[in-house]
Design a protein around this nucleic acid. Structure first.
Ligand SMILES: [Mn+2]
Ligand SMILES: [Mn+2]
Ligand SMILES: [Zn+2]
Ligand SMILES: [Zn+2]
Lengths: 137, 137
DNA sequence: TCGTCCATGCAACCCGATTGCATTGTTTAA
DNA sequence: TTAAACAATGCAATCGGGTTGCATGGACGA
């Protein structure tokens, strides 16, 4: 059972410690993006800093991606498998619900092509929609 | 001279105090979006909190809009004239240069239409591009 | 077994954002 | 004209997310 989780970590070049396995299991259960406080609250006793560094490591190694939805805290969600250290391939739309304040990945909605003025080089594109989610309608 | 500035403030239902006139004049001079510290540094002696509240008021009244470019601080820039209290009409692309760390409004690049899954209601759409600006190429 | 490396835990700090409150300035109604 | 009512300002204090320093502990290879 842990086998699968450990394999995922190792495939992303992350040493599978107890904490990391727990955090990854937690992330897999989520249906919306979570912030540091959410993860912390997901465990009876857990060190905030260790979770913080775990999430940082996960992000660096391409296991999760961070989302800046305009709220006070950064949120995290699991990446598509194709993501690698330093490269997040699946650029998709994120939706923030102003009612339940949940942030959802919409991986089927790829960010659109945009053309920039002459001389501008594009490296990254962030698209965040705000509104009311289907649960809250 | 101040006449024009005062008219702008009054047209947005903002009482034209000395500080507000100065801040608006400052904002009109900018070519990139600014944060609170920028505005503060733009004056010899100025109270940070007053500027903070000035920017908040400007935003509420639809004179400026705030930009979350993924950096540590919120940035602000003047709105199109059509913007009103609570309603920012000119949804456009913002470009953050990773070299000079400036954030530019690209009002000619409107945010694209997106279609959401059934049951999702759209209220707002934020699009931020990151890369290298024409000055830094 | 020892030494090295990495992960962890705890304390401390940084900084942008925000609030409380007393004071000052401006507007409004008597 | 004057006094009350209201809005803006200035200063101190706080909050909270994010980040770093450092000592300890566990895993693993020489
Ligand atoms: Mn996502
Ligand atoms: Mn803009
Ligand atoms: Zn919702
Ligand atoms: Zn630049």
């Amino acid at each position: 059972m842990n086998e699968a989780i450990e394999n995922i970590l190792q495939s992303k070049d992350i040493a599978p410690t107890a904490m990391r396995i727990l955090v990854l299991e937690y992330l897999q259960k989520q249906t919306a993006a979570v912030n540091l406080a959410d993860v912390e609250a997901g465990f009876a006793q857990a060190d905030r800093i260790t979770i913080y560094r775990t999430l940082k490591t996960f992000e660096e190694k391409g296991l999760i991606h961070s989302i800046n939805d305009g709220t006070e805290s950064t949120k995290y969600a699991l990446c598509a498998e194709a993501c690698k250290a330093g490269d997040h391939y699946d650029l998709h739309l994120h939706f923030f619900c102003i009612k339940c304040r949940q942030t959802y990945c919409l991986p089927k909605h790829k960010v659109p092509e945009i053309d920039l003025p002459a001389g501008y080089q594009l490296k990254e594109l962030n698209l965040v929609a705000k509104g009311i989610c289907d649960q809250c309608t």
